[in-house]
Design a protein around this nucleic acid. Structure first.
Length: 303
DNA sequence: GTGTTTGTTATCAA
DNA sequence: CTTGATAACAAACA
């Protein structure tokens, strides 16, 4: 489940590999994940260079060099739940067998299928080939993710309407966070997952942040005291910062653009740990559905 | 066959 | 208009 730290890791790594490279071929294997036909993607992308790669929330934004024809200026890629972007720095097709992901620690078979062998594989929904070298594979078991072409105007509107301030930026100051929570009756967990209010958090980091701040996920957002709000704000920033440093969390099938797992899994305190002892108070951690999502928490110390 | 996994959006209600 | 709650989506697994 790529959230902000995972997408940030992918964006940083791919920027090193792809910026300055020219797109020479685009293949769409599953029409569902693409905003346009393969022919249209080819027409708009082939011959253009990647000049910048950014992330906003969980969205990857590839800036394309200008074309002479009116054309989309941006390629947007969203990984949603099970999307992966794997970059292979090679000219020709891989001849299967070798493993990209040597230190895999997951029992998810889709991961093994995705990066353990030949690419493209059965979950590869699109691929982009570059000059002078390399191929980017978009794998997505569940086909929730997408590739989308957008003009500058479209991108601007999309970001403005759907993405709130994000952790670790000046826009996400404590006063801004306080304003976001003020007078809201929705559960704090639902609020933190809402990308229009705060961009980048997902189920893992929300559960971890609420535990770190000792706040129950079902508390009405507006009911947090001033000290609680500050504690939660600090927890979010600290956890996201550390998760980026550790190159994200691999829980089910996340891998980075080289097929490697994220290291933050070692630092998870509540996510996926239901039935185990709370690291703070030693009581049992529980899991229940909150805001439609599996929610991990300690009923004893999260009030 | 049933329930579960989640990022995001559609839909409905107030 | 805003806000909030819930279902739906896809595919695989226990």
């Amino acid at each position: 489940m790529p959230e902000m730290p995972e997408v940030e890791t992918i964006a940083r790594d791919l920027a090193v590999s792809l910026v300055g490279q020219k797109i020479v071929l685009v293949k769409i294997f599953s029409a569902k994940i693409a905003s346009h036909s393969e022919a249209f993607f080819k027409k708009k992308l082939v011959g253009r260079k990647i000049i910048k790669l950014e992330r906003r929330g969980k969205l990857l934004i590839f800036s394309l060099s200008p074309a002479s024809l009116p054309a989309p200026d941006y390629l947007l890629i969203h990984l949603k739940m099970t999307g992966q972007l794997i970059y292979l720095n090679r000219r020709a097709k891989i001849v299967g067998g070798h493993s990209l992901n040597s230190n895999r620690r997951t029992n998810d078979n889709s991961l093994a299928a995705a990066v353990g062998g030949e690419l493209p594989n059965k979950y590869t929904r699109a691929s982009i080939s570059f000059k002078p070298n390399g191929q980017l594979f978009f794998n997505d078991l569940r086909k929730f993710g997408y590739l989308k072409l957008a003009t500058g105007v479209e991108l601007e509107r999309l970001l403005k309407n759907n993405y709130g301030p994000e952790p670790l930026t000046p826009a996400f100051s404590l006063p801004v966070f306080q304003t976001i929570l003020k007078n809201r009756t929705t559960k704090i967990k639902a609020l933190l997952l809402n990308q229009k209010l705060i961009a980048g958090l997902g189920n893992i980091y929300v559960d971890e942040s609420l535990w770190a701040a000792r706040i129950n996920p079902e508390r009405p957002a507006g009911s947090l005291s001033s000290p609680e709000t500050k504690k939660l704000w600090q927890a979010i920033n600290r956890i996201i910062k550390q998760a980026i440093k550790e190159r994200g969390t691999t829980f089910s099938n996340y891998v980075d653009s080289k097929g490697q797992s994220g290291n933050f899994s070692r630092f998870l305190r509540v996510y996926g740990r239901q039935g185990k002892k709370c690291p703070n108070c030693r009581n049992l951690l529980l899991k229940k559905k909150v805001a439609g999502r599996g929610t991990h928490y300690c009923p004893h110390c999260q009030k």
